[in-house]
Structure formats: structure tokens, C-alpha cells
Nucleic acid binder design. Structure first.
Lengths: 200, 200
DNA sequence: AATTTGTACGAACGATCGTACAGTTTGTTT
DNA sequence: AAACAAACTGTACGATCGTTCGTACAAATT
């Protein structure tokens, strides 16, 4: 059953939309979701401003779609590979190492997309902030649950998850701001030291 | 020798400038240094836009002055009190606890000013980023040096400082984004657990 | 009293922002 | 081949951005 009937117009539209969102996420990781402007996006992609606008209907919708697109990239690169391992220490290590590599190799040119937009929207109300906060909660919950799957750490998974995520974000922040790759080494040291130490 | 000769015009100008910068830092901690606009600042302070502008000559200078003003507040509230204690564990604890209180009681309405603007400027070039990075380095160096003053931690002060600062920033980020004061409790737990454990 | 200096104002500028809408191109359906 | 639907374009809008400039007024200097 090869050759599913596809409307070539819709196909083209979706591809354009994907290109817009990919570039939007790249820009937003550097300039923020507010710094992201429809006009600039259109210029860089060599399409019309109204063409970009028509895909989303408002800037807020563009921002929300950008967040969702970035989340999908994050999921594919960091979460999914780890979930292929059974719960336990190996899964947790792959999850954390996957995050560090995701940040380190600049999947987004400005470092972790969510670090950038969290800090940008954390103190203002609105749907964009709510969406970002929801993804943040999901990530925290995932790390906590993964920690819970490691017997030696299961006594206080919230606390351990807090510390582990703190190391990751710190590495991202330091390495981007100071162009200092050594931050990742320090984060790895901190992570392994934390994982080696039982809690309770 | 009371009554230093002061030019009343300069005096008035400086006071206006201080009011502008205080409000600018408040706004920037929520909306960022780019979201900070001269027109809005003028409206909120009920002065003319050109009046605000004239004090700085360019938006970039306003941003730089805002960063310096915020640094002064941070210094007074967090750094100076700690430096009044002799080097050692007590000084380190006061420094870290001072930071947590500075963030927790919302000295700036958007949480830590430097967390917000670091994430905003970390990936773009320019004088504002350079200034922010410099303050970041100074803060890191201060924490490292303070750690070095604690014999049990002096073996790897960079690593310990990395972890401690990570806890602080994580608490700020989580509490602002999720309106969750429990983040500070977790940071305190992490800090004390870290301080109680010798390095080496 | 006349002059200089510094703060603050009001009006206007070109550019860019998000948004609206009518028209064109391109592909599908009949 | 005609009718239609979807993606995309061009032009225009009101608002706001940072910035410039000439002016008004108060305080210090002479």
C-alpha cells in the first residue's frame, strides 16, 4: 500500500511550516521568543512576511508552535533514546548524558532552547509561559521518575532530580555565556559524584 | 565640614537618573533588557521620553547603566554582608544564604536580575553581554575564593563553587517559573549537604 | 544683571513591529 | 476545460521603536 494519496499543496505547506519553525527555534534560542520577529524570519527564509504570518495567524501562535517544535527536537534527541533502556542507572545516565550532548553540540545555536525561553518568560503571564512551564514540569517529572528507578537514589527522587537538573542547566549557562567547554566536564563530575552517593 | 558645595542641577539629575535605573532594573528582571523600552519607562515614571533618553544617549548605554545599577544592589545585599565575616565556613554560608534571600524575597520582581539578563544575552555579541559576563565571572570567582577559605572544601574550589551556584540558580528559576517556594528548601538542602561533605 | 550650564520637554523623523486584506500562483477535483 | 481550494504575495494600516533637534526653564557663574 505504497503511495498514500497526499495533497501536494498541503504537503508543500507543511514543509514550509517546518522550515519556518526550525529557523524560528534557532533564532529564539539566541534572541528569545520576543526577539523573534515575523519580518526577520521572512527575510532570512526568503519568503514573504505575510506568507509566514498566514501560517500562524498571530505572533503568539507562532511562539507556541515554535515551543512545540523545539520540544519535539528535544524529545527525539534526549528523551526517546533513554526510554529505550529499562528503568535503572543506565537509563538515568543516558538521559543526563544525552542532555549534556544536546546542549554541548549546540542542537540550537544559543544552547538549550528551553533554558533561554524559560528565563525569558518565567515572570510574565500568558499562554506561552504556561506552555513553557508545562514542558518544564514534564521534564522534571521525567528525571524524578527516572531517578526513582535507581534503588540507591529512590529515597528522595525530587531532591536528587533537583540537583541533577541544576548541574545540567549550569553547564549550559556557563558554556554559552563564557564560551567555556570546561563547564560540561564539571557538570559530568558533579553528576557522577551525585549518582555514586546513596541518599537517605 | 558639613555642607559640601553641590550643584542643585546635578543633584536633581542624579536623583532622576537613580529613579530611572531602579525602575529599569525592575522591568528588565521581568521583561529583559531588550523588552525594556525607553517609551514605556518614560510613561511609567511620568516623565518625557526624551528626558529619559537624554540621560544615557543610547539604548545600549541605558542597558549598561541598568546592569551596573543592579550590580550595586546585588553587591550591597549579598556580597558586602558576607565579606564582613572572616574567611571560613560562616562567611560561605552567609554568602549563599544571602543570595537565596535576595532571590526569595524578590529584590527584583522577576527574581534574580542577573539570571534573567544572562540567559537573554548569553548568545549574542556586544558590550552588554560582555558586561554581564564580567559580573558573572566576578561572582563565580568570589564564590570560589570563599569556598577556598573552608579547609574541608579547598581541594577543588572550582568544582564546589560550580555545584553551589547551580543550586542557587536552579532555585531561582524553579520558584519564578512555577511559583514554587519549595525550590528554595531544596536548594538549602543541597547546599548544606554539599558543605557537609569534604572534597578530595 | 547678563551669561553660561544642565535638566527636561514636545514634536517629529525613519524604521520596524504585528496585523489585515485583496489578489496571484499552484495544485486538486470534477 | 472549468471550478475550486490551498499556499503564497504585495500593499497598506496604526502603533511603537530608538533617535534627533529646537526650546523652555532653573541654577550657577560672572
Amino acid at each position: 500500500m505504497v503511495g498514500v494519496k497526499v495533497d501536494g499543496r498541503l504537503e508543500r505547506g507543511e514543509q514550509t511550516r517546518r522550515q519556518i519553525l526550525r529557523r524560528a527555534a534557532e533564532i529564539a534560542s539566541v534572541e528569545g521568543l520576543e526577539g523573534l520577529s515575523i519580518g526577520r524570519l521572512a527575510t532570512e527564509l526568503e519568503v514573504s512576511k505575510s506568507g509566514v504570518f498566514a501560517h500562524f495567524g498571530s505572533k503568539e501562535e507562532l511562539q507556541l508552535a515554535t515551543v512545540r517544535a523545539a520540544a519535539k527536537i528535544f524529545l527525539d534527541q534526549v528523551v526517546t533514546p533513554a526510554l529505550e533502556l529499562p528503568p535503572g542507572g543506565a537509563r538515568l545516565e543516558l538521559l543526563l548524558e544525552g542532555w549534556l550532548v544536546y546542549s554541548e553540540r549546540r542542537t540550537f545555536p544559543g544552547g538549550c532552547f528551553f533554558y533561554a525561553v524559560q528565563a525569558e518568560f518565567d515572570a510574565r503571564p500568558g499562554r506561552v509561559r504556561d506552555a513553557i512551564a508545562e514542558y518544564g514540569r514534564a521534564w522534571t517529572a521525567l528525571v524524578r521518575d527516572t531517578v526513582e528507578g535507581v534503588p540507591d537514589l529512590a529515597a528522595d527522587p525530587d531532591q536528587v532530580a533537583f540537583e541533577l537538573i541544576a548541574y545540567l542547566e549550569m553547564a549550559n549557562a556557563q558554556s554559552v555565556l563564557h564560551d567555556d567547554p570546561a563547564a560540561y566536564a564539571r557538570a559530568r563530575t558533579a553528576v557522577h559524584s551525585r549518582l555514586a552517593r546513596p541518599v537517605g
